[in-house]
Computed example of a mutant assay.
Amino acid sequence: MSGPSREGSVMPNPLKALCAALITTLLAVSPAVADQSTVEAAADPVRVMPLGDSITQGGSIGGYRLDLGTKLRAAGRNVDFVGSLADGPGSMPDRNHEGHPGWTIAQIDANVVNWLRTYTPRTILLHIGTNDMYGSDPAGAPRRLSALVDKITNQAPSAEVFVATIIPIRFADATVRNFNAAIVPLLRAKAAAGKRVHVVDMYPAVPISDLPDGIHPNAAGYSKMATVWYNALASVPGSIGDPQQPGGTCTATSKIVSTWSGGFQAEVTVANPTASALNGWTVRFTLPGGHAIGQIWGGTASGSVTVTNVAYNGTVDPGATATFGFLASGSGAPAVGAATCASP
């Protein structure tokens, strides 16, 4: 009797010790694990799919993707180009895309659902139609593009779909102009219906002098395309994530409120994510070449472009926001470059 009694009294002690150790370990490790998962989730890159034909593929120089990637990284954007193809110089950090040389709108349409399912892009950059311009039915290309965009938005309704007017073709300029003129109202109607479709006016960005073969841009032309894409992306919050601002005390997010021929209205929201009130703020951003601010409210503008608070909105409590707006005029696509914010 005494043996079993002693065993019965001894057994719980190691179990209790083990349980206590496990609890201590969990209490010590769980916050770190939680923090790690939070950091990893926050660090997930925004998946961007460059989609189109050889102008998206860009040959051995990587097309617009090279300079666009550089601009995004310089702005602190955590972006991952996605797609089944990889082209460009070996030194190019991110070479993936869905740019298929020689392909028409119909060919992209036949494959796009599988690509969207496989790569689940958050943002899509679509420049397609060039090969349709010298095909058998250029007049039907706007209808085909409209159907393609519908297929994309139906398959990926939460994705931001940026659709470019196509760049010039030296020997088919009138056909290109007709195509571009036809697709813009179709695309704007989709946006007005609530679809996440954004028109990017790429045609005026690349002069024919930057098309050595009359179709494909040289490095200078692709760099101009990259600037137009970047400005368009930066104008749509979330399309390329939020800029990483180590040590920053505030954030700034811009949006285009309305557009018209030769100008646009924009609004910028300043947010305070810290635990202390902001006592003044300064926001910096860029505008497309040739654009200038003509009128501003809720801030004072200087340079190209720096905006500081006015008296009534300089103090921003923790978790609160302040806004300013402006009117800009100029040629080209309306856009507000990535905005940064600092507080004294």
Rank of each mutant, 00 (worst) to 15 (best):
S2P: 00
G3Q: 09
P4N: 15
S5D: 05
P12G: 08
A20V: 04
T24E: 02
V29N: 09
V29K: 12
S30G: 12
P31N: 13
A32R: 15
Q36E: 06
A43T: 12
V46Q: 02
V48R: 04
G52D: 11
S54Q: 15
Q57L: 06
G59A: 10
I61F: 12
G63R: 12
Y64T: 11
R65H: 13
G69C: 07
N78R: 15
G88Y: 09
S91F: 08
M92W: 08
H97C: 09
E98R: 13
T104H: 10
A110T: 14
A110S: 14
V113C: 00
N114L: 13
R117G: 13
R117E: 12
T118E: 15
R122N: 12
I124R: 02
L126S: 03
D132P: 02
A139M: 12
P142F: 00
A147L: 14
L148T: 01
V149F: 01
I152R: 03
Q155C: 11
Q155M: 02
Q155L: 01
E160F: 02
V161L: 05
I167K: 04
P168Q: 10
R170V: 11
N178W: 00
F179A: 09
N180H: 05
N180T: 12
A182S: 15
I183Q: 02
V184T: 15
P185F: 01
P185Y: 02
L186I: 09
L186T: 07
L187W: 00
L187M: 09
V199R: 12
M202E: 08
P207T: 05
S209Y: 09
D210E: 12
L211F: 01
G214V: 14
P217D: 15
N218C: 03
N218V: 08
A219S: 14
G221N: 13
K224G: 00
K224V: 01
M225Q: 15
A232S: 12
S235E: 09
S239H: 08
I240C: 03
G247D: 05
T249N: 08
T251H: 05
F264C: 03
F264P: 07
F264V: 04
A266P: 11
N272E: 02
P273S: 15
T274S: 12
A275S: 14
A277L: 00
L278N: 01
N279K: 06
N279D: 07
T282Y: 03
T282K: 14
V283C: 06
T286I: 02
T286K: 01
G289E: 09
G290I: 12
H291T: 05
I296L: 08
W297G: 13
W297A: 10
G298D: 01
V305M: 10
N309V: 03
V310H: 01
T315F: 02
T315Y: 04
G319T: 08
A320V: 03
A322W: 00
T323I: 07
F324R: 09
G325D: 15
L327H: 05
L327T: 14
A328S: 13
G330V: 15
G332H: 11
A333W: 00
A335M: 06
V336M: 11
A339H: 04
A342R: 15
